[in-house]
Design a protein around this nucleic acid. Sequence first.
DNA 1: ATGATTGCAAAATGTTTGCATTCGT
DNA 2: ACGAATGCAAACATTTTGCAATCAT
Lengths: 136, 136
Amino acid sequence: MQSVMAKKNVSEILRKKGISVTTQRIEILKYLMQTKTHPTVEDIYLQIHSTFASLSRATVYNTVMAFKEVGLVQEITIEKEKARYDGNFEAHPHFFCRTCQKVYDLGAEVKLTYPHEKYKVESEQIYLYGVCEYCR
Amino acid sequence: MQSVMAKKNVSEILRKKGISVTTQRIEILKYLMQTKTHPTVEDIYLQIHSTFASLSRATVYNTVMAFKEVGLVQEITIEKEKARYDGNFEAHPHFFCRTCQKVYDLGAEVKLTYPHEKYKVESEQIYLYGVCEYCR
DNA sequence: ATGATTGCAAAATGTTTGCATTCGT
DNA sequence: ACGAATGCAAACATTTTGCAATCAT
């Protein structure tokens, strides 16, 4: 029954992360937490701009960078053309369909095991490529 | 003793892949098979252009795309800014150092396990992020 | 009040495209 | 000889930057 995250909850998340709370950031975070489409900056801009006309692309760029730094979003570079953003910060693999160009989440069934030796790993991304079930 | 791959061998690889053999392709493939730096298009262009002045950036773009299609290189999108190319086509993880911005190969100690269910996986990329041993 | 954020425009970067010339087979 | 590959310039897409106006605390 809680279809869309309330403005208050989103503000609280921003406050807890120690970054200042603006209307733009609230709107962008609400959108990112609610969608599973892995939107690009342009996607985010077009979506929010349609109901909040003053939003600029520069602010979307600033905002996703700020969110990435405090750990509110993951940056998905599964295609070389453009970055996508995922409001789910938990590590999980992504699948790119080369037919419909959509990015899907994969779950815990994909597992990565490695010894932390020479490298101090801070984050990881697993990208799988192929054709999704709908396009086959 | 075989420091640099001979022109003949490289030509043979191209011929076996069924793509036509040009001087530019020979030079680019020789370079990609010999380096472990995961060069960008600009890196490849600058390196080869220094001794082969007529090479153009457009040809480097065309060539890495052709190589990718026939399975001679992997495209590494570990950074959103630019793609890198790896002449080692075997699946292996990559590590990106956020300090020196270099990309390192990781070996078989990193393992990915998953069931092929809904998605027909054709290729995979594993990217790890952190600080390398030299930068720490 | 003051420093951070925003919006706009310009610039920078990486990549793609169109087309005439050259090359590989 | 013919289709493919090359080189150049222009176009395009994404991202970054500079700066004045506005907003958050």
